[in-house]
């Protein structure tokens, strides 16, 4: 059974004159215990998608539709909004980029962790509960690999490093014992040693607790070591999804191909001052989105047909949304 099954989710930015379709019918499925990478350039709507799943988008500014939104076989679209939020916030947790900005600057780390410990895990009278909360916090900090817990509990967010703050964010996320953790670029603006630490922590959580992780990143190369499956997005549209191996060795979509080609490799033979491989142009702005396949104007394989949005084709679990996929080349 799929853990999360989303079909044709669209997110509209409510504008003054007309609405803008920021995310256009994206589908996403996740199995239990899976680490899925969600990859795309900045502005491709991957963070929006994550925020729509968790339900923190401002309702006065964004409108979200979906054809299907199943969570562990339960149709969330049929439930009233309060129940939906309760289910999601019980089972799904999220960590964000820029961890320091995501912690309240005037409250100590300890207090912020304490309030994340859900009431249902405590028992007894309120003074007993307070003790339990304190213990739970220390346990959580140990679980994310912070050994000096007293120092950490008593400090304010600005007194800790970026990587420590991200660990604290992960600890906060773990407090509810989530089944799915959404990590929105957890290592952006971090040094590579710290990046490795955070990724290893996430990987161990996945292996030891069987926690599913949706790992959002703009860097395809970086994510491949840690994920089982990958979904690629471009400018708010679904591009391709498959196992990491499929995506990495046999990409079907020209965009994925271009992403892979654009990352330099150690054994590449490039003449001096040669250009690296890139797609021409840049990602379109939201006010001037191309019709049909949004990659159209930049795509090397684009033809007249591409003004109509392609249907998603499924080849043994390898999904691709392109009229002229590269499948025939392999």
């Amino acid at each position: 059974m799929n853990l999360l099954d989303i079909r044709n989710l669209s997110i509209e930015l409510i504008g003054q004159k007309h609405d803008i379709l920021a995310v256009d019918r994206v589908s996403l499925t996740m199995k239990e215990g899976e680490v899925r990478g969600l990859v795309g350039e900045s502005g491709s709507g991957k963070s929006l998608l994550a925020q729509a799943i968790i339900g923190v988008l401002d309702e006065s500014r964004w409108r979200v539709h979906a054809d299907r939104f199943h969570w562990r076989g339960q149709d969330l679209l049929r439930l009233p909004i309060e129940e939906r939020k309760a289910i999601i916030s019980k089972d799904v947790a999220m960590i964000f980029q820029e961890p320091i900005a995501c912690l309240d600057p005037t409250t100590t780390i300890g207090e912020q962790l304490e309030e994340a410990v859900p009431e249902s895990m405590l028992y007894g009278f309120f003074w007993q509960k307070r003790q339990q909360r304190k213990k739970a916090v220390i346990k959580l900090l140990h679980r994310v690999g912070i050994k000096q817990h007293t120092m950490c509990i008593n400090s304010y967010p600005h007194q800790l490093t970026e990587a420590l703050c991200q660990r604290v964010m992960i600890a906060i996320a773990l407090a509810r014992r989530p089944i799915l953790l959404i990590a929105d670029e957890p290592t952006a603006a971090m040094e590579s040693t710290n990046q490795g630490q955070i990724f290893r922590l996430l990987a161990s959580l996945n292996q030891l607790k069987n926690m599913s992780i949706l790992l959002i990143s703009h860097d395809l190369e970086n994510v491949t070591h840690w994920t089982h499956t990958i979904t690629v997005m471009y400018s708010g549209q679904f591009v391709e999804a498959g196992t990491t191996k499929q995506i990495f060795t046999k990409p079907y979509h020209p965009y994925t191909q271009a992403l892979l080609d654009s990352s330099p490799k150690a054994n590449m033979h490039l003449p001096a001052k040669a250009r690296l491989m890139t797609l021409p142009g840049s990602i379109p702005i939201l006010q001037h989105l191309p019709i049909g396949c949004r990659l159209g104007p930049r795509c090397p394989r684009a033809q007249k047909q591409c003004v109509n949005a392609p249907k998603v084709k499924n080849y043994h679990g390898h999904q691709v949304s392109c009229h002229f996929s590269l499948k025939d080349l392999y």
């Binding site: 925020q51 968790i54 923190v56 916030s89 019980k90 947790a93 999220m94 964000f96 820029e98 900005a101 995501c102 912690l103 309240d104 600057p105 409250t107 309030e115 994340a116 859900p118 964010m169 906060i172 996320a173 509810r176």
Partner: peptide, 21 residues
């Protein structure tokens, strides 16, 4: 700010977010 958004994702109710943060 992002910490209010993060507090929402943490599962705190609106009242808790307003009073505590």
């Amino acid at each position: 700010t992002s910490y209010i958004k993060a507090a929402k994702a943490k599962g705190l109710s609106f009242r808790q977010i307003i009073y505590r943060h």
